[in-house]
């Protein structure tokens, strides 16, 4: 993806990341945060959560992966995410992005969101600054 190929308002291809228990377990081990609230629905409910929750930083990583697929070779200079509501492990989510600004020096700004496909709630929203090739 080159800067001249991008237009304000362009939408990134939607993605439905793997949020299965198996993948979340692999993630929490890599992140050294292997707590039952992320990997055990019963234990999470005992903590007052609606079920095992997807770690916010895993969602952030999934958004980064979406951007990297959209613009191979790009560099994400910053990624700022707000975790609004819990996303439940095993419940499908959709990642979205839209180009909201294009700088003269080859940097684009992108809005990113993760939305629960069952409740319609926005779990994560934020922005990224990305240098294109």
């Amino acid at each position: 993806m080159r800067i001249e190929d991008v237009e304000l308002g362009d939408e990134l291809p939607e993605e439905r990341p793997d949020v299965s228990l198996e993948t979340v377990r692999r993630f929490v081990k890599a992140a050294e945060m292997d707590f039952p609230r992320f990997t055990d629905h019963e234990a999470a409910r005992a903590e007052g959560l609606p079920g095992a929750v997807i770690p916010g930083i895993m969602s952030q990583g999934q958004l980064a992966a979406m951007i990297h697929r959209w613009a191979p070779g790009c560099s994400i200079l910053s990624l700022d995410t707000i975790f609004r509501t819990s996303m439940i492990v095993g419940t499908p989510v959709v990642c979205r992005g839209a180009v909201t600004d294009i700088d003269d020096d080859g940097i684009v700004e992108i809005d990113v969101t993760i939305i629960s496909e069952t409740s319609g709630a926005t779990g994560v929203l934020g922005t990224a600054r990305v240098r294109l090739t």
Partner: peptide
């Protein structure tokens, strides 16, 4: 009344 309560541009 209505408002977007937008916190990011695309909302």
């Amino acid at each position: 009344i209505g408002g977007s309560d937008s916190h990011i541009v695309s909302r």
